[in-house]
Every structure is written in structure tokens, then in C-alpha cells.
Amino acid sequence: MQQSLDQVRIRLMGLGGHGIVFAGRLLGMAAAMQGLDSILTITYSPEQRGGWSRADVIIAKEMVDYPLIDEADVFLATTQQAFSLEFKSLRKGGIFVYESTIYKPVIPNANDYVVIPVPATEIAENVTGRRLMMNVVLVGVITSALEPLIKEESIINAIRGMTRRAGKLDTTVQEMNIKAFQAGLDYGRKYLKGMG
């Protein structure tokens, strides 16, 4: 099915609590703010706590029609479970991003994919002092891979505009998020440059 022609499909997956949905919202919102269309669908395992969560983002120049992902162009897995469950959905030639301080995946036919290992937790802790910001670091890495479809400012604007049930993120948290994002972006840019 020809879904890949005019849109980018990103599948983010990890442990509930890894901030997967937040990452998906950042990417989707950034795209929307750039005049693209984007859809984010979220799936959880049945457990209320401790299960996996998955966020599928589709970004399209025109309108996104079929809102679900049958095959991903970009796949992020922050846990071994996520990797085992959904790596099969990554298309050949797709980009695979994983959290390298959490696990080391054994990738079948690794040469068919662009693989980016990211020590995101470490980067987050170094830059912001908070391991939790690991998800935003990974958003940075994914952004670097998608540039110029998604622009750096859009993500920063998305972080600033992000609201939660109880209102906006407070400014210090916003700034920490932005720092983490930029660190991820730098890491990704460097890594991709290194790959040539």
C-alpha cells in the first residue's frame, strides 16, 4: 500500500513513563506549526502502570488520510520490549533510533537500516541534570534525521506552546526541555555527519 509516497511515518515506542506521548506531541505539533498536516495516534498495553506505550506520528504535506501506520519510516524504541515487538514494522532503508544506555539491540540485517544509537539518558543528565528529559533528547535526534522537513525552531516553539491539563509547562522546565532537545539535535547531526 502506497502510504510512503507523500508522508513520513514515525513510530515511537517505549516503557510507559518514558515520555513517548510527549515526544510524539512535540513532533506532531512542530509539523502542524510549520503548515504541514500531522496526526498522532497513541496505543498502550493493557496495564495501567508498567506497560509499553506507543505513539505513531504521520507527517504529510497535504492532508493525512489513513491515520494509522502500517509501516514506519522512522522507528524509536527505548526498551528491548519495544524493539522486539515492533522492529518488524520499520521499512527497509528506514531510520532506527534506540536508547543505547538502556539496552543493546541485536538488529537483524543491520545494514538495511540507518541505525542511530543514542545514550539519551546520559546526555539528558549531563545537560539538564534530569534523566527524565531523555525523551526530548531523542526528539532532537529524530529531528536531526528529518531536517529540513522539521525545523529546529518549530520544535522549540512547540515546547514553549506545549500545554498540559494543568496549564503550560513552567518556564524553567521549558528551558531545560529546549536544552535537552538541542543536545539531542547536535548529537544527531554529528552522528549523521559521521556516517557520511
Binding site: G28, S38, I39, T41, I42, V64, P67
Partner: peptide
């Protein structure tokens, strides 16, 4: 359910 739970522009 899908419209209700999906994020969009």
C-alpha cells in the same frame, strides 16, 4: 474512539 484519541492539527 479513533477521532477522540488521535492528535491532529
Amino acid at each position: 474512539q479513533l477521532v477522540g484519541h488521535m492528535y491532529g492539527k
